[in-house]
Amino acid sequence: MARAVPARRKMLTTILGWGVGLTIFFPILWTFLTGFKTEAEAIASPPSFLLFDWTLSAYDAVNQRTDYLKHFWNSVVISFGSTGLGLLIAVPAAWAMAFVPAKRTKDILMWMLSTKMLPPVGVLIPIYLIFRDAGLLDTRLGLVIVLTLINLPIIVWMLFTYFREIPVDILEAARMDGAELRSEILFVLVPMAVPGIASTLLLNVILAWNEAFWTLNLTAAKAAPLTAFIASFSSPEGLFYAKLSAASTMAIAPILIVGWFSQKQLVRGLTFGAVK
């Protein structure tokens, strides 16, 4: 009898877990299914779940109207570019904060994070104007820069929490062994922090991949990533749900696959080093 309670509890939490999981997953599943309907069926009432005529017509339409690969490539460049550039800046910054803290280091970290609380619209006009004058509108470079800046606080924070776990003795040993700052970071700190850096990289690639405010507002055609590709299928009139769903499925599929294969790293990343 003593075991009955934990067993029941386990069943309950399992059911609850599946419930929450399916609820979150349902919209994605619905989008996926809608992509295989005709436009008429997509808005049919009551909606049909699985028993409809599966068709690729929406995908055909999407591929005829736009160049998926171009947008896909833009997304890859922008998300990996901004994450890479961000890491390049954040590794030394997090090194300084974790290993040579000053009195105000904690405050600086909080302040950096607080910039994430500002609604982006608040700085849209100035940034738009700066980008226009600098010729960065609708360029991949421009988006790499802006997304680097947007995600930098998170990258620094994540790396900071990982670096803090590394005993400073080991870095001091490297210094005594004749390592200059660059060697200390490259040969000792970074290899020891590989799991943390990998989680940071993954999470930020995903954040950048999904970022829709700046990518939509600062691009027109040339540099438009997959977010803009999705948005181009939503129109004020006519039937577009099936095409929109097909485009969405195509846009999120790559990142979903990457995420699926790196679940472990991602969970570590999202828990900010709390799970070891």
């Binding site: 005993p167 003795d169 080991i170 001091e172 040993a173 490297a174 210094r175 005594m176 062994d177 004749g178 390592a179 200059e180 000792v188 290899p191 020891m192 590989v194």
Partner: peptide, 18 residues
Amino acid sequence: PARRRLAMVFQSYALYPH
């Protein structure tokens, strides 16, 4: 420290784990 040409042995050993 890197240029003082001194070597140090730490209480915690401070070996490079990787």
